[in-house]
Design a binder for these strands. Structure first.
Lengths: 203, 203, 203, 203
DNA sequence: AATGAATGAGAGTTCATTCAT
DNA sequence: TATGAATGAACTCTCATTCAT
């Protein structure tokens, strides 16, 4: 009985997080109101406070939900034994796929996390930095293995990949007709080969 | 006399736009309050409405201010006689430089323009689309001249360039120590050459 | 339980309408402020918006409340089988009595309804026109039955009765010592007999 | 020179009063704003204060302007040597004619004078009371001369006449196609003869 | 005689939050 | 577990008024 109850609570809370993600994504944190969130999950405004202590807490949970998945994947990717290109493809795939499934929460993480109180923000930052560092590491290994040009700045490269993924993630969210697979391929191709013909070996 | 008066008005209105840009960039449109904007330019809240009919109008003006410069440059670049690479470099330089000078307004344009009423938004959209189309055109010309690989999707490429510039623009805004020139160079290099060594000629 | 709740809401809303009527009557729509209304019913300003979507909606409800009663009576009077004079007396009695009970709302209807948005105003107008038309009809029947002089313009007569009732209604509201019964009698007498002696038969 | 200047001032002030009357009539005292008034006379908001110390003073001047004319006439009528009916006709004519010429100011006097500060209001009240008293006097003389029925309450009668004139005045203002002469005739007829046939002599 | 610019007080409205039920 | 009702703080916006020019 008590267990069933606890289960229901967890399920409802998940629903609340998704509802909040949806509303925050659409209107931004400050532009959204708790009534909208409550209505989207079919309860009344006051009842929301059974699941969140405050609107801010809701934002925190949404952000966490948004990234925990693809941040989790990254550890697997980084620790795997694949060559550089495979890892890069895997990263981009994981990142962009996340946008299709958790698009709203991810968008919220990107756009609204700065409205979080410091304490909560830094906890998220750790996760985010971990992601970037692992990606940076992948580039370093790529440079050592010779797959990546010596002249590439690995820190910059990681940022660039994340930036481009997020930019495309945004477009994916906005346009549901966009084919995920195609975008992944093109992004990967661009990042690996650049725009120009490869005529000479450059270092 | 009357001229001087009109001039003062224009100058103050410019100041108001900059102040609004600054506050919107920091807190978002809905998170910002008109009192902050007024105080940042040294007047009282109510006086702001001497320069803007509404908070929304302020947002519109900020957005316009944010892009009109680099959108204006694009026409010059596109119409010039330079080869593909030079045009790409010029574009990236213009775009990222804008972030240093009008960083706040640009950030606002990117993040908050969707809160604009439809009418005003579509006027901005035209400008933005014009930019993207010109950039697309540059890629198409590049493909014809052979500077760009045949396999590159020009529409995608233009989006990618814009996305990456904006992502780096964000970082430039957030971190004032970042060297603009270096970022421009690295972005250009990445976009032109990709991450990998160029060993074989691909089409 | 739910029923009791809905009932409470309805009761409170009625109270809000009366409070609004009272304040609007005293200060006019634009001169009144929502804080006054709220305080008059013992709640805080913000709480008023639990019952009205806007100040304007409050005005609409007050106006409706003000006339629905005497407009409703009119149907009964008009459809009854009484002779002309009895119907006229009944009309005047109903109209002026309304001023004693709903004086404030009625005054508001008369003086402030023009500040209503068009949509809501036209709904009220229908009610008002219905009232005037029925009264006009009563005069026409009176003319046919011979109780009213042939020379009387029925449209004009109806307007005149309404105008006089409203003028006296105003005085009734302003001076609570005024005896309602006396006013009704004198109005009726004046309207039926005029000021002058009846010496000859005129048509 | 100074004289010409003083003259222009007076003329402009008159224009200001008319402009204020027009705006107050349309939107009510509290609903009107000084900017509207200024614009209607072709000057800027701030300049209005050259002619009025405050918005309230403007209201006072409008009210005075609205009634001084027909109140002035009343003295002439009352002091004349005409019989009762002629005096009543003259009164109604003067009152309703005023609505055609100064309709806006008169409407303002009727609807908005209560928003005047006490001091100024009582000065107007004197004028208004004087009007009513003179009218009452006319009825009393009529009763003595036999033109008016003994049973008529003269105080009531005067109020009724004023009430009806104001009610019709409102309609005259609202509907510019209404023929003034017809309205005067019908009002007079109604007040003198009532609605019913005069078959017997009543006292 | 008129104006542009600014002000400050106050308005209507929204909304996160609380709490008894 | 959920809700209806209420609150109070914050916000946008309006406007009468002032004053240097």
């Amino acid at each position: 009985m008590q267990q069933a109850s606890a289960e229901k609570y967890t399920k409802q809370r998940q629903a609340a997080i998704r509802a909040a993600a949806s509303v925050f994504a659409e209107k931004g944190f400050h532009g959204a109101c708790t009534k909208d969130i409550a209505e989207r999950m079919g309860i009344k405004q006051g009842s929301l406070y059974y699941y969140f202590k405050s609107k801010e807490e809701a934002l925190g949970e949404v952000c966490l939900f948004g990234i925990q998945d693809y941040v989790g994947h990254m550890a697997t990717i980084a620790d795997s034994n694949q060559p550089f290109e495979a890892k890069l493809i895997a990263t981009i795939t994981s990142h962009l796929s996340s946008y299709r499934e958790r698009n709203e929460a991810l968008k919220v993480y990107n756009d609204e996390r700065l409205y979080l109180p410091k304490a909560r923000r830094s906890r998220l930052k750790e996760l985010g930095s971990g992601y970037r560092q692992r990606l940076e590491r992948i580039f370093e290994e790529g440079r050592i293995s010779g797959a990546v040009r010596q002249s590439v700045d690995c820190h910059f490269a990681a940022q660039a990949v994340i930036g481009m993924c997020n930019a495309w993630g945004d477009l994916i969210v906005r346009d549901p007709d966009l084919d995920l697979f195609t975008v992944i391929q093109k992004c990967t191709d661009l990042l690996i080969n650049g725009f120009t013909k490869k005529t000479t070996t450059t270092t």
